[in-house]
Amino acid sequence: MASYKQMLQALRENLEIIQGQLQISNQDMGIIEQEKQTIIEMEKWSNIEEATLRQKIRQNWIELGISNSKYFHSKWNI
């Protein structure tokens, strides 16, 4: 299975191709639908990427021992 980074890269490349086709034939409803579906898939995988990065950040905070400290929260608020 491909990682979220690979999926996003493939979807970006696919979107570039589709948008190039749209410049040539901007009335083709099939291409417009492909573009919509690709954008929806990109959004899904972008959300997965964001969630993964948040988990990694939380893990780092926990490993550093600052996840629930008063000091950390006061610095975060600043």
Results as ranks from 00 to 15, higher is better:
1 M>R: 15
1 M>I: 04
1 M>E: 00
2 A>L: 10
3 S>N: 04
3 S>Q: 01
4 Y>N: 14
4 Y>H: 15
4 Y>E: 15
5 K>D: 03
5 K>N: 13
5 K>R: 14
6 Q>L: 15
6 Q>K: 14
8 L>H: 03
8 L>C: 08
9 Q>N: 12
9 Q>C: 03
10 A>C: 06
10 A>Q: 09
10 A>S: 09
10 A>M: 07
10 A>F: 06
11 L>M: 03
12 R>Y: 11
13 E>F: 03
13 E>N: 10
14 N>D: 11
14 N>L: 12
14 N>Q: 15
15 L>R: 12
15 L>Q: 06
15 L>V: 00
16 E>A: 14
16 E>S: 06
17 I>R: 11
18 I>L: 05
19 Q>I: 03
19 Q>H: 05
21 Q>P: 05
21 Q>R: 08
22 L>I: 09
23 Q>G: 10
23 Q>Y: 05
23 Q>M: 12
24 I>D: 11
24 I>M: 12
25 S>V: 13
25 S>W: 09
25 S>F: 13
25 S>L: 14
25 S>A: 15
26 N>I: 13
27 Q>A: 09
27 Q>G: 01
30 G>I: 00
30 G>A: 08
30 G>M: 04
30 G>H: 04
30 G>T: 07
30 G>E: 01
31 I>T: 07
31 I>Y: 00
33 E>N: 13
34 Q>S: 11
34 Q>F: 05
35 E>K: 14
35 E>A: 09
36 K>P: 03
37 Q>P: 00
38 T>A: 06
38 T>F: 03
38 T>L: 02
39 I>C: 07
39 I>M: 10
39 I>Y: 08
39 I>K: 14
40 I>Y: 00
41 E>K: 09
41 E>A: 07
42 M>V: 00
42 M>H: 12
42 M>S: 08
42 M>N: 12
43 E>Y: 04
43 E>I: 12
45 W>V: 02
45 W>S: 01
46 S>F: 02
46 S>A: 06
47 N>Y: 01
47 N>C: 01
48 I>A: 02
48 I>P: 00
48 I>R: 07
48 I>S: 00
48 I>T: 05
49 E>H: 07
49 E>N: 07
49 E>G: 04
50 E>W: 15
50 E>N: 15
52 T>D: 06
53 L>G: 00
53 L>T: 11
53 L>W: 05
54 R>M: 12
54 R>I: 13
54 R>W: 11
54 R>F: 06
54 R>P: 02
55 Q>H: 02
55 Q>N: 09
56 K>V: 14
56 K>Q: 15
57 I>D: 12
57 I>R: 07
57 I>H: 13
58 R>H: 10
58 R>S: 04
59 Q>W: 15
59 Q>C: 09
59 Q>L: 14
60 N>V: 07
60 N>H: 05
60 N>F: 04
60 N>C: 04
63 E>D: 08
63 E>A: 06
63 E>Q: 05
63 E>C: 02
64 L>W: 13
64 L>P: 02
64 L>M: 11
65 G>V: 10
65 G>W: 07
67 S>T: 01
67 S>C: 02
68 N>R: 10
69 S>L: 09
69 S>M: 05
70 K>Q: 09
71 Y>C: 01
71 Y>L: 07
72 F>C: 05
73 H>G: 05
74 S>V: 06
75 K>N: 06
75 K>I: 01
76 W>R: 13
77 N>S: 04
77 N>A: 11
78 I>P: 01
78 I>M: 03
